[in-house]
Nucleic acid binder design. Structure first.
Lengths: 105, 105
DNA sequence: TATATCTATCGTAATATTGCGATTAATTAT
DNA sequence: ATAATTAATCGCAATATTACGATAGATATA
C-alpha cells in the first residue's frame, strides 16, 4: 500500500490529479511564477531565488518536467528552464472544465 | 526533513499549493465530480461509488474537508457531504489568476 | 591540462500519503 | 434494551515526498 491505485480511475482524472500534484508544493508554484516574470528563459539562478538547497530545487524542477509544465535546454554550462505554454494551457483547460462542472450545483 | 517549509513562501503560494494538493489524487477528483452530478447532497454511498474501502474514502473526504472544498452535515445516522461553492470559486479564481499570469510569456 | 562552475543524481533521514482491516461512537430500528 | 447501520478513527504496512550534503559528469575558462 502507500501507492495510489491509478488504474481504478479515468485517464482524465489521473491527468488532472497529476497536474494538480505538480502545483501542490509552494516551491513549485514559486518556480513557475519566477519563470513567468523573468521573460528570458531563466536558468539555474532559480536556486538563488528560492530559499532551498540546489539539490532540492533540482528535484522540484524534475517534478515540473515530469508532467511537462517546463522543459530544460542545455545552454553552455548551465541549463535554461522554460515554461511549456502548451501544457500550461492544457492544465488551464482541464482545471477550468473541472471547476465549471463542479460549480454547477 | 520530509516536511514542506511552508514558512518560506507566501500565503497565496501556500493556499494555491494546498488547494492543488486536495485535487492531487484521482479519488478526490472523482469524489468532487460525483458530489457535483448527484444534485442532492449525496451521503456515504460515495463509498459504494468508489473502488476503495470505507476507511480510505473517509480519509479522502477528510482531506477535502481540511481545505474547505466540502463539508459534511449529520443527517440521521448518515452524513451528508456537500460541495462548498465558495471554496470552489476561490480555487477557480486563485488558479485562474495563476495561469493567466503564467501564460503571459 | 587543470580548474572552476553548473546541475543531476546518490545516499540518507524525517515525515507524509495511501490503503486496509478492525474498532469505536453515534444513531436508528426492532 | 438489543441489534443494525453509518462513518470516523486507530493501528499497521508500504510507498512517496521533502530536504540536505556529498558526489559525479559535463562544459567552460585559465
Amino acid at each position: 500500500m502507500g501507492t495510489t491505485k491509478k488504474e481504478l480511475f479515468t485517464g482524465e482524472q489521473n491527468r488532472l490529479a497529476g497536474l494538480a500534484k505538480a502545483l501542490a508544493h509552494p516551491a513549485r508554484v514559486a518556480i513557475l511564477q519566477y519563470l513567468a516574470v523573468s521573460n528570458k528563459c531563466v536558468c539555474g539562478d532559480i536556486v538563488d531565488e528560492l530559499p532551498l538547497s540546489q539539490s532540492t530545487v533540482s528535484q522540484h524542477l524534475k517534478e515540473l518536467k515530469k508532467v511537462g509544465l517546463i522543459h530544460g535546454d542545455i545552454e553552455g554550462t548551465s541549463i535554461c528552464y522554460c515554461i511549456n505554454p502548451k501544457v500550461i494551457e492544457e492544465a488551464r483547460l482541464i482545471l477550468g472544465k473541472f471547476f465549471t462542472k463542479i460549480n454547477c450545483c
